[in-house]
Design a protein around this nucleic acid. Structure first.
Lengths: 354, 354
DNA sequence: GTGAAAGCGCTAACAT
DNA sequence: ATGTTAGCGCTTTCAC
């Protein structure tokens, strides 16, 4: 039913070859012919069959993205923004986005392998990197291009964009210390994730810099969800003396903590300081608005996408690894009125060589 | 590089035909042969080339989903849950999900047409239906299967799952009236969306049932985002007398309204009632938790996905149109302590013929 | 029960 | 500057 290249060729009394080359803009076809071909193709509504092209060129023009859902509800806005960033940039380069959701484990593995083996995608965007991440070795050996958002301990030499979570957390702790806090709790992420270690280390460095003791009971590991943050905060708020500040490993966690505090009749920003990491939109709309460490997720999605497409096309990357500095965003949940940031706190978005 | 069906055939000294049929489970191949083929294929790590299969069968086993992002930030959890529902069900049926994000308009149209013309997907899931929706006619004429989440005025005879937003809003108004409210404001959605009219009508019906007057100044049209809800609520809260309750066309809007109220030092649930529609997770974690009209978005995603795949495979649907009744979820943002619901309010999830 | 051959729609190497 | 031919990897007649 749909019009093929042969239909166009027949209509013009030309060979399919010529039509193909005219459309591809090769220079060995007469300008007049090219014009006619392009014109007619448009008129006839010809669009190349993706499948045929794929088979012939051995390229899918498709990027794979598998979201590691941790809970049954998949609603971290972090992911949607990231996806939008990848998708927009991919579109710009005429690539599409194949998406799947699978919790880390067998199903995830199956999906990666299926897409690799059936040559379903040209490459992958990896997200939520793990400390030991089988995907790195697997994709490297399978020679499938990938670019990750996040680092890993498995290897350091794969293309990725990282965000210096340690730096961000450290700056956040410093900020809290400046405001007079010295019992600062930390609700962490699953320790298998790189970002968990990263951010926890930053927290510890921050304490150290302020010569505050590290108290392990003030650290609770949770799962990066609102519910997790809520649960952990309930525990923390029972301590005596109560921590005067709680940092969530991400914003969702912090939002859960805010809820817990409010249920306990505490006024956030006065009775207790709460802060997060990510800079999701929801944090701007809590009461009071959430102090956080912001990483430009949409933009990072775009950069990762661009890097991946370059790799797929074998354009060399000018930088294989990028480390971004996140930005401290001071709002009212820590009690600070808006005030000039210290130089260190400013930490504007910057690319740095590693 | 990857192993093809010919490799398997050669290894076994069989023809590709036989291998193909053995793997497809046809019954005209000897059981012993089948066993050997299956075994060897597995050992060799053979996975059929998706492109080749696609070309041959003229089927992509792929579902298209284009998200209508309204703002630059794409973060309505409604969409992620919906996507997860579609994706999970699709996986179960061995289908993949091709995703794009494009605001309604030219870019959106281009994407739909590109995917249709290049036979990139077997069908579409449509979301955020418009009162006049070009997609319905276009896809119908192009003979591309689709299933929508939501109704439209363009036509009523396309396969879709609708949620009776009118019913939900009406129940919500009734509930508020029961609690003593009679100045109930409504922050609506862009009127081009079907759900906007639907929910607004329900609001009006609810007022009517309670013999309350309809006051147009109490209705503000916004864009379904937190920021929109915030903006509209700021306006509403300046009125004297102040509305005693605000309904948001969706939860995000309501969350924005909560923020506005809290900034004005109002205690939500006491000084003012606020409610939404959707039942996103964030609503469980506001302070106080948000009263809302819940629609099971994840499950609906699954149902839509299943319906679409049936259509693609030309299995007849037992029901082309489904209308679900949403559920009123009473929490504290309207001041109601938890209490038994009235019979009408119960409105449990039910499929109904239209 | 198995194999040979055609063809899905396209691109590219090789003529002319 | 244009056409002929082969082939990407698979499924499916049709013959044996």
């Amino acid at each position: 039913m749909p019009v093929t290249i042969r239909d166009v060729a027949r209509t013009l009394n030309l060979s399919v070859t010529t039509v193909s080359r005219a459309l591809a803009g090769h220079d060995d076809v007469a300008e007049a012919t090219r014009q006619r071909v392009v014109e007619t193709a448009r008129e006839m509504g010809y669009v190349p069959s993706h499948a045929a092209r794929q088979l012939r060129r051995q390229r899918t023009e498709t990027i794979g993205l598998i979201f590691p859902t941790l809970g049954s509800r998949f609603s971290d806005p972090f992911f949607s923004e990231f996806m939008a960033g990848i998708g927009d940039e991919a579109s710009r380069c005429n690539h599409d986005l194949l998406v799947s959701v699978a919790p880390p484990g067998e199903e995830e593995e199956t999906t990666y392998k299926r897409w690799v083996n059936s040559r379903r995608v040209d490459g992958f965007v990896l997200v939520r990197m793990r400390v030991h991440d089988w995907r790195i070795q697997y994709l490297t050996e399978a020679q499938v291009p990938f670019v990750a958002f996040g680092r890993s301990r498995t290897s350091d030499s794969f293309p990725h964009i990282g965000v210096d979570g340690g730096y961000g957390m450290c700056a956040l702790v410093e900020h809290l210390v400046t405001l007079g806090h010295h019992r600062i709790a930390f609700i962490g992420a699953p320790s298998a994730l790189t970002l968990a270690q990263d951010r926890l280390n930053g927290y510890r460095r921050g304490l150290q810099a302020a010569e505050l003791p590290f108290d392990p009971t003030l650290v609770i590991e949770e799962n990066l969800t609102r519910t997790g943050g809520y649960r952990a905060a309930l525990t923390l708020l029972q301590y005596t003396p109560r921590p005067s500040a709680i940092i969530g490993a991400n914003d969702l966690t912090a939002l859960g903590a805010i809820r817990a505090a409010q249920e306990r009749q505490l006024t956030v920003g006065r009775d207790i300081a709460i802060a997060g990491f990510d800079g999701i939109e929801a944090g701007e709309h809590t009461h009071p608005p959430l102090t956080t460490v912001h990483q430009p997720v949409y933009e990072i999605g775009g950069m990762v996408s661009e890097m991946l497409i370059r790799r797929i096309q074998r354009d060399p990357l000018e930088q294989e690894q990028v480390l971004l500095k996140p930005t401290l965003v001071v709002r009212q949940s820590c009690g600070a009125a808006f005030q000039p940031l210290t130089k260190k706190e400013e930490g504007l978005l910057r690319k740095t060589h590693r």
